[in-house]
Design a protein around this nucleic acid. Sequence first.
DNA 1: ACGGGCATGTAACTGGTTACATGATTCA
DNA 2: TGAATCATGTAACCAGTTACATGCCCGT
Lengths: 166, 166
Amino acid sequence: MPVRDGLLALLDEGPKYGYQLKTEFEHATGGVWTLNVGQIYTTLDRLQRDGLVDATEADGQRSYQLTSDGRDALGAWWQATPVDEPPPRDELLLKVLLALGAGNDHAREVISRQRTALYELLQRHRRAQKPAAGQASRLVAEALLSRAEADLRWLDTCERSLNEGA
Amino acid sequence: MPVRDGLLALLDEGPKYGYQLKTEFEHATGGVWTLNVGQIYTTLDRLQRDGLVDATEADGQRSYQLTSDGRDALGAWWQATPVDEPPPRDELLLKVLLALGAGNDHAREVISRQRTALYELLQRHRRAQKPAAGQASRLVAEALLSRAEADLRWLDTCERSLNEGA
DNA sequence: ACGGGCATGTAACTGGTTACATGATTCA
DNA sequence: TGAATCATGTAACCAGTTACATGCCCGT
């Protein structure tokens, strides 16, 4: 629950009001993750419902802060590591697996199309935003690249398995 | 919408009934993605609501099949490639970015913990299920490995950026 | 008789997301 | 004055997910 936990993390620095959370969230992510303002408030409502946050009003400015339960939840989030069981429901993964089930030709076509798209993504991002650009957005771009390279390698594996297995 | 599209893909082979879709879905993914049976039916209802699927009943066996809209939607899904704008809301990514905002020490700790977990995941999967094990589950495992390696490299990048930027 | 797998469903909830409404303040 | 930004909120929808109920049929 990225948004939920993101708000908790930001609130750990101290009480904030809703709109402020929007700007800080976007700033923290280098501006690449925009957030509909409304979502902040719906999420804050739900956090309040769950007792992780409470609000105090003054001058029509509603200030939100972590409860001790909220601090616990946040601590747990920092500690949490990705689970691999069950493996994440990934779109690319599922698509290729199903394509394999639908016949080798179909699979080859799907793999080829995905590879092309990933390769273009790679080139596009390598060219762009090398210089300057805040630390956050640079890291986001590099995460994207790293994942794309991994997916490309995996697609190669799939094709190899397809050729051997046939 | 992995489940939704997964069912469409399976129905492309011909009419199926609900329970059959569950078993075939799980089989296609090497058994790593279990699916609550109920979800099949809720999803089929929604697909029917959207006109992508229709059902014909006989002997209490309800058979589902693609409509022509459904075939179109499926075709679009096969063609679709991952979008990078906005970048996927990824848990690890967000966590590290927010940790960076919360101070270098905190970031170092989070990065270190994530790295350890990913490294253990790597070792665990490298040891296990090398031999036999259907094509599907082997590919799933390799996708996991590939992604984990990418994330490890990215964490290295983050730490480097942390050390240089300070 | 009974347990287990086949088969169909439903009610309820979760978090993410958007479109929309409202008003205050600021500044050109 | 009027547009932009700050600020708060709500109603509605979406897909994913689970817990639960029901019944049939088959092999022991």
